[in-house]
Nucleic acid binder design. Structure first.
Length: 830
RNA sequence: GCGGGCGUGGCGGAAUGGUAGACGCCGGGGACUUAAAAUCCCCUGAGCUUUGCUCGUGUGGGUUCGAGUCCCACCGUCCGCACCA
């Protein structure tokens, strides 16, 4: 009934023209998989409480919802079930929207968007063309991560331990012409910008910092003996240059490859290197292997000094220059390598008193110290030596200061159907030509065939055949689509502004953005959140918006977890898991309902289908009601931590809903008389709940409401009690909106409680007039005193010393000192 | 290996350097009922020689009149990254 009332009144529609202060509350939009899961419920409940509270506190709140609707699962469904990805996705959206509505979320559905609709992705194509015009989009032939199962390219971020993040298939390297977004051009900005994100979790900032991976050092050349060319290396430790004992190049370094052409042994070694695994365990245990090329190079600081050149399995081609100089005394990998191939190990940084030239330890020394055994650099600090070598290299022309980034440009080409078509046309005469904006959107064809693997767009009979926009000759559309992370890199802008003829309106963006509070899972700490930051900066760079950062405050919520129920299958010793619904808890034990025999209760872990420890939001809403489920999502666990789901817990919440319903039924508008203590408790609770919600400390707000509820139930009827009941109703309105609306009407209020004003607080009532003082003797609690607030120190001291318990604890000992903290504590030191 | 988080009752967890365990769950006892459910009341960190005392926030030190909180070292656990020069 109340959901219909909110819909009818358009209660949660955000008004762009409002002159109230604004608040944009956003939760990460879901992928329309078909059903919402309990993690969504927790995420959206938190955002909802914040949004509803902000509305009651007088803000114009934007709290939208949409669908991250492109991606592989729709194509998998198409291949497995023969359905159309669009039909499948849209049906899922309809089902999930119904589920969200059932939970009573205060969302502005008028701004709903789905990234798979042309009126969204068409604007994305326009933005992509703008970024291309600004030189931030380019195409290049490159070795890419190829997922052989999904038959598509993956970004580096989507390769985990050498496997595709979705398919789990071993990723192969392939050479393909790919579209890239120049995120590395913003590497410095994205790194520096983290410093201003003081309302982001440190963890996320650190993760992004490490991901961007800035290293400053020297790029320099080790010349071949008596030649004018050589091997370029990058190092962050130019100060250790006099400790060099070899140069190592990557197995796929061009020099290694050309040498291998005439050296079968080297070719075999290179092949060996490529076989090496990429999982954490394999890298950890992989032995350092090298192949002596027989070549030598001159030491840049002393051309008479020659060092050997090895091909080594631990040198990466795609970082730095694909070549390093080895300083074994001060780098663990180099040390292992040098020991194996019996190369010199020269100490060049003093380890405290240890300065001997020959380094004979098992662990490389990487700490601070003075430079030694380094001729003209002896006695310098590491930093002084770094600067000195770089200066010398630049002066003498064999090297220069350089910054290296771990971050790579973002490859966005995907050889898939269900994504945003990349708006370009390949013409034999004119090359790669942008689709004119007047011809946008480039719409996906509907008639599509999933019978064979690969890109369905590429084999569509007609779609790609178009005339060249420039010369009119025969040409072909680009058949790659965009990585879905592009779709989620600007959706928060489209929520704020939805003109038909352009992606968004600059003034509307300025009004709503940045998002005041963004809430989502920690799993997006790097990918989505870094890409969204990049897009925001890129769009500012090309003059479309005026903000640097999209999300002022970020909150990463914990997962919902559940214990598991299992039995060992006697046939194979493997556990068989059972769903919570199949199991009955009897105290500490659990039995399977169907046979009454015990099952083992396992650890509380993340809900997953394979462990069958999931609960379905629809079922629990049907059983306990949306308000009880919402209350559970907020109770007990701090929101950033995992929340263990339990039947007992949700039943407790359900009982509390009933308890409130009974309490609200006791509202007596005509009651008279004051209850000062209850008035004080009420206002203290309102203030505390407001600050707890502002800090997203929902579990603490819930505890406060429990306390006030208990106090109100116990209080005798009075005007104060009725006022307390009305206040509790307002405090729980953001959390249990359905009960609140019903009771609001019941107690005779008009209008929706969703539109009611947050209860005011009397500051005078927040200050206690009576306080309980802790009385300690030598730091141990011996007594408490209840006294009027604001008593002077001397009086408190006298009262404490007069206490029997204090005198007994002192046992005649001489009082040496008395610490008095007014209104809090007296500590008698003997 | 590097980076980050977390260790408090049977469980989830509270606690600006100032009464550790708020609040909830579980459990125990009682009231109401023919009975049950629901509801309400009381108890619920451990121990003891129980008007009270001792111990107690992963371990060991330290700072302080006073430490769950601050500092040092360690242990455990979870997460992220990783042959990044």
């Amino acid at each position: 009934r109340w959901q219909a009332a909110w819909d009818a009144a358009q209660t949660f529609r955000a008004d762009d023209a409002s002159d109230k202060p604004r608040s944009y509350v956003l939760e990460m939009f879901p992928y329309p998989s078909g059903r919402i899961h309990i993690g969504h419920v927790r995420n959206y409940t938190m955002g909802d409480v914040l949004a509803r509270t902000k509305r009651m506190q007088g803000f114009e709140v934007l709290h939208p919802m949409g669908w991250d609707a492109f991606g592989m699962p729709a194509e998998n469904a198409a291949m497995e079930q023969g359905v159309h990805p669009g039909g499948w996705t849209r049906a899922n959206i309809a089902a999930m929207k119904k589920q969200l509505k059932r939970l009573g979320f205060a969302l502005d559905w008028s701004r709903e968007l789905a990234t798979c609709e042309p009126d969204y992705y068409g604007h994305e194509q326009a933005l992509f063309l703008d970024l291309h015009a600004a030189g931030l989009v380019y195409r290049k032939e490159s070795a890419v991560n190829w997922d052989p199962v999904d038959q598509t390219v993956l970004a580096n971020e989507q390769v985990i331990d050498g496997r595709g993040w979705r398919s789990g298939a071993l990723v192969e390297k392939r050479k393909l012409s790919q579209w890239f977004l120049a995120i590395t051009r913003f590497a410095d900005e994205l790194l520096d910008g983290l410093g201003g994100l003081d309302k982001w979790p440190d963890k996320v900032r650190t993760m992004q910092e490490n991901w961007i991976g800035k290293s400053q050092g020297l790029r320099c050349t080790f010349k071949f003996v008596s030649a004018d060319h050589g091997i370029e290396v990058f190092t962050t430790r130019p100060d250790t240059m006099f400790g060099a004992s070899f140069v190592a190049i990557a197995a796929d370094h061009p020099l290694a490859r050309s040498l291998a052409e005439s050296a079968p042994e080297l070719a075999a070694f290179i092949a060996d290197c490529k076989r090496g695994g990429t999982t954490a365990a394999e890298i950890e245990t992989a032995e350092k292997m090298g192949f002596d090329t027989g070549l030598t190079v001159e030491h840049p600081l002393d051309p008479a000094w020659h060092v050997p050149v090895y091909v080594a399995n631990f040198v990466l081609m795609d970082y730095g220059t694909g070549a390093v100089f080895g300083c074994p005394a001060h780098d663990q990998r180099d040390l292992e390598f040098a020991r194996k191939y019996d190369l010199p190990v020269i100490r060049v940084v003093a380890d405290g008193e240890k300065t001997a030239l020959n380094f004979d330890e098992d662990e490389a020394f990487t700490g601070p110290g003075r430079i030694v055994n380094s001729r003209w650099m002896d006695g310098m600090t590491i930093d002084e030596a770094k600067r000195a070598v770089i200066a010398k290299a630049q002066h003498d022309g064999w090297g220069r200061a350089e910054t290296q980034w771990r971050l790579r440009d973002w490859g966005v080409s995907r050889q898939r159907y269900w994504g945003t078509p990349i708006p370009f046309i390949h013409c034999a005469t004119c090359g790669v030509v942008p689709v004119p904006k007047s011809q946008l959107p480039v719409v996906l064809p509907e008639d599509i065939d999933f019978a064979t693997p690969g890109n369905p767009l590429a084999r569509h009979p007609t779609w790609k055949h178009v005339p060249c926009p420039k010369c009119g000759g025969t040409a072909e559309r680009e058949t790659d689509t965009l990585d879905t992370f592009v779709d989620s890199s600007w959706y928060f802008l489209r929520f704020a502004s939805q003109p038909g003829d352009r992606p968004f309106d600059r003034e509307a963006i300025a009004k709503w953005l940045p998002v005041e509070q963004y809430i989502g899972g920690i799993e997006h700490a790097i990918l989505h959140l870094l890409y969204a930051r990049f897009w925001t900066r890129a769009l500012k760079h090309i003059g479309l918006i005026d903000i640097d950062e999209p999300f002022a405050s970020l909150f990463t919520q914990g997962m919902v977890t559940h214990e598991t129920y299992s039995r060992v299958d006697p046939a194979n010793g493997q556990p068989i898991y059972f769903q919570p619904a199949e199991v009955e808890k009897r105290g500490e034990q659990a039995v399977l309902k169907r046979d009454g025999v015990a099952v083992e209760i396992g650890r509380v872990i993340k809900m997953s289908k394979s462990k069958k420890n999931t609960v379905d939001p629809d079922e629990i809403v049907a059983k306990y009601g949306a308000d009880a489920v919402r209350w559970f999502m907020l109770s007990d666990s701090p929101p950033e931590r995992d929340l263990p789901w339990s039947e007992a817990g949700i039943e407790g919440c359900w009982r509390f809903v009933q308890r409130l319903w009974r309490l609200f039924g006791q509202y007596e508008p005509a009651a008279t008389g004051n209850d000062k203590a209850l008035d004080r408790k009420r206002d203290q609770t309102v203030a505390a709940v407001a600050s707890d919600i502002a800090a997203l400390g929902f579990n603490k707000a819930v505890a406060r409401i429990y306390e006030l509820t208990g106090a109100t139930e116990k209080a005798a009827p009075s005007a104060s009690r009725s006022q307390a009941i009305r206040t509790i109703l307002l405090l729980v309105a953001p959390m249990m909106p359905h009960l609140a609306e019903e009771s609001w009407a019941q107690i005779g209020e008009t209008g929706l409680i969703a539109d009611a004003v947050w209860p005011p607080v009397d500051p005078a009532l927040l200050v206690a007039d009576e306080v309980t003082i802790a009385v300690q003797v030598k730091g141990k609690l011996r007594d408490t005193l209840t006294v009027a607030a604001g008593l002077p120190r001397e009086e408190l001291e006298a009262l404490a010393l007069a206490s029997d318990k204090v005198q007994r604890a002192l046992d005649g000992a001489q009082v040496r000192n008395v610490i008095v903290v007014p209104d809090r504590l007296v500590n008698v030191v003997a």
